[in-house]
Amino acid sequence: MLRLANPNRFMQWSGKLLPWCAIATVILLGVGTYMALFVAPPDYQQGESVRIMYIHVPSAMMSTFVYAVMAVSSAVALIWRHPVADIAARESAPLGAGFTLLCLVTGSLWGKPMWGAWWVWDARLTSELVLFFLYLGYIALVNAFDEPTRGARAGAILALVGVINLPIIKFSVDWWNTLHQPESIFRLGGPTIAPSMLWPLLIMVLGFAAFFVTLLLLRMRSALMAAKLRAIRLQQIEAA
């Protein structure tokens, strides 16, 4: 693992992997969107509005998954002082914030016709909003220091403290009375959602995940190149 995380090694393997990830993303999101809009049936209670689910659920799952990636990277960066782990955490954050925003807005657009309200302060929605602010706080904190390594350490600690929010989001629908429906996919006894809806949903989830991996690799490569550029310029200034 640590060998693959050497910056030069990372540039080598990520460069080879990136085009395949991009192709997988395009295919999965293309097929997934087609199935979500044309193949999946309308819900017997919710009608066509159920099609919002194919955006809402994948972005909700990615919002917490990306946070977990960010927290693990932060832990690795704190313990082993690894520069690539640090960059992984830093470059995950904007993507996670994007997924969380998408989850919140599509949830709102789904909530209005189904619950009669754009927003309610219940446990699931509130904890997801807290997640959004954790991402924004992390991004602000990491960029608040003149010295990048200090910003990275402060950010890593915030990311790890914020992990407490993940089980709260996951189990909020069981622990509190809420308008939000309970888990219907990853539950004991199997999914309660019909296969005709489950398949398009799973393909969309995989598409969102592939999109995240593609963009994370791309952004990490960008950040490593920028770091190298800074180092070379600094050398030139010192030599002059």
Binding site: R51, I52, H56, G98, L102, V105, T106, L109
Partner: peptide, 19 residues
């Protein structure tokens, strides 16, 4: 969208914009 156009299409539009 069975009368839900003003909820469904903005959701897909925002997804396209963000991604």
């Amino acid at each position: 969208m069975g009368g839900y156009a003003r909820f469904v299409w903005p959701a897909y539009a925002l997804a396209v914009i963000v991604l």
